[in-house]
């Protein structure tokens, strides 16, 4: 797949960093988020793309526990759920 494609879904701005966690099982996607969200500046948006249904609960829970802002869920071009987070700290 061409990862340079820039498309806007559901009117949301594209994330500044997209973590491709396809095929990963919990808690690996949240570990990726915990490790790599600091790669973007405060105020920027990180997205996690993952099929594993636990992420639907665990990404918002991570935001609550780590003081970040959960923006919501949309879908990647291939239909895989994508969870968007704004870095606040």
């Amino acid at each position: 797949m061409d990862s340079s494609l820039t498309v806007t879904f559901g009117g949301h701005p594209e994330p500044d960093l997209e973590l491709d966690c396809r095929g990963m099982l919990c808690p690996q996607p949240v570990i990726e988020l915990g490790r790599r969200h600091t790669e973007v500046p405060v105020g920027a948006v990180v997205a996690v793309v993952v099929e594993d249904v636990a992420a639907r609960t665990d990404v918002p829970a991570w935001c609550r526990m780590r003081g970040q802002e959960y923006l919501g869920e949309d879908t990647a071009p291939d239909g895989v759920p994508r969870y968007r987070v704004r870095r606040l700290t």
């Binding site: 636990a54 665990d58 609550r64």
Partner: peptide, 14 residues
Amino acid sequence: EPSHVLAAMGALTH
């Protein structure tokens, strides 16, 4: 599937 109880509460499932 993660625990449906934890998911329903919005609690961390892992």
